[in-house]
């Protein structure tokens, strides 16, 4: 009976299983980064940024143009992160702040509008030539053996970069004064102001950091999916799933959620029978799992329970 549902049984081919898990962890850590960006913004401003993926997309396209113009790779990476940072800050200041004290749906619609706007702008600027565009990786795509599985150097590169980003964020939030101020702002903006924290600046910084983290995710994804105006959409959806899975206000939750979603996605694609599910159904299946998880923990695995007030 089980054989019917599990196309190639995992225990018959441990190598395939290992490969799927490791590459799942690699894509999962990209989801974790985008999920972290979403959580950073949600914690500080209570906004779900639906334009997170498109912001990263715009930055990655800009980087592609810079590479084409002959700038050295490391300079472009640096500029890309700075651009993501600046874009996040700019968006917060110009279009998010004015709607902050308005009905919550307005912010949702503003980020949705931004999503459509940025997508269109990128199409206008970059869709003139051929699409998708090739975006190279500094890590290369050579296969290497890691104990029992073969994985690409790019996957390893993704894991390393994601770990570095997470470590930097952890240090920033837990061991610097700036991080203390940002956490305080997320918890209680009013009291933070009385402590002398510049709350507006902290909110802007939250968006800026999210923009930078998103940009890193964008440049890690682009070599795999290639570059076209919608290339971040699927990533964004998996990242939403990851963030919701872990709890929208929990950074560790976003990381665990991202890794889980990445691995689950790969296993669904490999081990479900093709005639019923198969690879093209892995997104719906992953999302189904997400909805089931939400049934049992509506605030995600690590999220705080919100108290109801009259």
């Amino acid at each position: 009976m089980i054989e019917v549902f599990l196309a190639p049984a995992p225990w018959n081919d441990p190598e395939l299983f290992g490969e799927q898990v490791i590459s799942g962890l690699a894509t999962g850590s990209i989801y974790a980064l985008v999920a972290l960006a979403i959580v950073l913004i949600y914690r500080s401003t209570d906004v779900i940024n639906f334009a997170q993926g498109e912001m990263a997309m715009l930055v990655t396209f800009s980087m592609w143009s810079l590479l084409l113009a002959g700038f050295p790779a490391w300079t472009v990476i640096f500029i890309g992160i700075a651009l993501g940072f600046a874009l996040g800050a700019f968006v917060e200041r110009t279009i998010i702040r004015p709607v902050e004290d308005k009905p919550p749906l307005n912010v949702v619609v503003v980020t949705l509008g931004l999503f459509v706007f940025l997508n269109s702008i990128a199409t206008w600027i970059w869709a003139q030539g051929e699409l998708p565009k090739v975006f190279s990786t500094p890590f290369g795509f050579t296969s290497v053996d890691v104990s029992l599985a073969r994985v690409t150097t790019h996957s390893i590169g993704i894991l390393v970069v994601a770990l570095i980003v997470m470590a930097v964020l952890y240090l920033l939030f837990n061991h610097t004064k700036l991080g203390l101020g940002m956490r305080a702002t997320a918890h209680n903006p009013g009291a933070s102001r009385l402590m002398g924290v510049n709350v507006g600046r902290m909110l802007m910084l939250g968006w800026a950091l999210a923009g930078a983290v998103g940009a890193v995710a964008g440049m890690l994804v682009a070599p795999i999916t290639f570059l076209f105006p919608g290339f971040m959409l699927a990533v964004l959806l998996y990242a939403f799933a990851a963030a919701v899975f872990g709890g929208l206000d929990s950074p560790p939750g976003a990381i665990v959620g991202g890794l889980f979603v990445g691995v689950a996605e790969n296993l669904f694609g490999t081990y479900t029978p093709g005639d019923i599910f198969g690879p093209e159904m892995k997104l719906p299946l992953t999302l189904l799992v997400l909805v089931i998880v939400l049934m049992f923990r509506p605030q995600g695995l690590f999220g705080r329970v919100q108290t109801r007030r009259v």
Binding site: K177, L180, G181, R183, A184, H187, N188, G190, A191, S192, L194, M195, G196, V197
Partner: peptide, 29 residues
């Protein structure tokens, strides 16, 4: 605050999920 006025608000308004030490550090922000 920088000029030397400190306001202890009504209802205390502590950062409930942060430690006592972190609260004090925020006071010295």
């Amino acid at each position: 605050v920088r000029m030397g006025i400190s306001h202890v608000p009504e209802g205390r308004q502590l950062f409930d999920e942060m430690t006592v030490h972190e609260n004090l550090m925020l006071g010295a922000y």
